Simulated assay, not measured.
Amino acid sequence: MTPFLKWAGGKRWFVHKHTELLPKKFNRYIEPFLGGGSMFFHIKPQHALLGDANPDVISAYKAIKDDWKNLVQQLEIHQINHSDQYYYQIRAKTPNCLVEQASRMIYLNRTCFNGIYRVNRNGLFNVPRGSKNSVILPTDDFESMANLLASADIRCSDFQKLIDEAQEGDLIFADPPYTVRHNLNGFVKYNEKLFSWSDQERLAESLLRAKDRGAQIVMTNANHASVRELYQDKDFKFLTVSRASSISASTKSRKRFEELVILSHSS
């Protein structure tokens, strides 16, 4: 099942190459940094707690779950009307209806520059129009997504609240925001706008508590000494994997970067 959002730091590459690192059995699936949901759509869990602090992301998932047919109709309208002028008109709007919020989010994600999600100081989406014009994609299967999401608990929430609900046998897949080019430019240890260092510390503490309750954990993070120190001597396992960076204006400048995988179990 192909994710419907293009997301910076998305884990499609992880799904294609490293699913053997996931535990074979678990109870509930918990993903506190949902984003594009690559892992969720790959695993297709029967019971899931899905969350993200981004309200636009959550509105999209909720609209698919609750009213996917109306959502598709709205996307078809966006497709018919798509143009430079229309793009910026939609970008400037702040709809109140859930389906309109979701269709706006998906439309902008698919037609903005490089699929980037960025807001200004007032919290308004400000990415310019990109080169892609397809609003409806051949990989779209919103009906199957709705069926999968039907049993999921979807929340706009801070990650800690979701992780604190994990119980014995649950699986937490944590993919927090972090600097894309940390291997070349240095890990941004204090990035308050993206994900602060205190957030990294809170995440480590939350995951340790969940592990102590018997939850299974798979986390991807920056392969940096400061991150490793947070989980050192806590019975976590470290693996280093590489991926191609997907964030670049030119495909020629995209290179491979290392990421850290932190596990609570033997793979």
Rank of each mutant, 00 (worst) to 15 (best):
K24M: 11
Y86M: 00
R121N: 14
I64H: 01
I172Q: 08
A210C: 09
H16P: 01
N126C: 12
V135T: 04
F257E: 15
F40W: 04
P176R: 10
L208N: 13
S206C: 12
S151E: 15
H47G: 09
H182G: 07
R129N: 00
P176E: 10
L149C: 01
E229S: 15
F187P: 02
E192Y: 11
S38H: 04
H78R: 02
G186W: 03
F14Q: 01
Y61D: 01
L239D: 06
A244R: 14
A222H: 09
I116Q: 04
R12H: 12
D56I: 03
A244V: 14
S245R: 14
D140V: 01
I64G: 02
N147S: 15
L50I: 09
L208Q: 12
S245E: 07
L230E: 05
A102H: 02
D235K: 15
L194P: 01
Q216C: 10
V188R: 13
Q46L: 11
I154F: 05
P3F: 03
I43C: 06
F33I: 09
K62N: 10
A152F: 05
H42K: 15
F113G: 05
M219W: 12
L21D: 05
V188W: 07
K44I: 07
K17F: 06
Q216A: 09
D140P: 03
S242K: 14
K44F: 03
L71F: 00
G169E: 05
L137I: 08
L149G: 00
W197S: 12
E205Y: 03
M219C: 14
S248G: 15
W7P: 04
D199Y: 10
A53T: 12
G37Y: 02
D153M: 11
D199L: 10
S198H: 13
R243I: 02
L149H: 02
N133Y: 09
S253N: 15
G9W: 00
S266I: 12
K65L: 03
D84Q: 03
R110P: 05
N81C: 07
A204G: 04
E205G: 02
H18F: 15
V99T: 14
E31M: 07
D164A: 14
T111N: 06
L194H: 09
K24W: 05
N109V: 04
V72F: 00
R256N: 11
E168I: 11
F173K: 03
D140M: 13
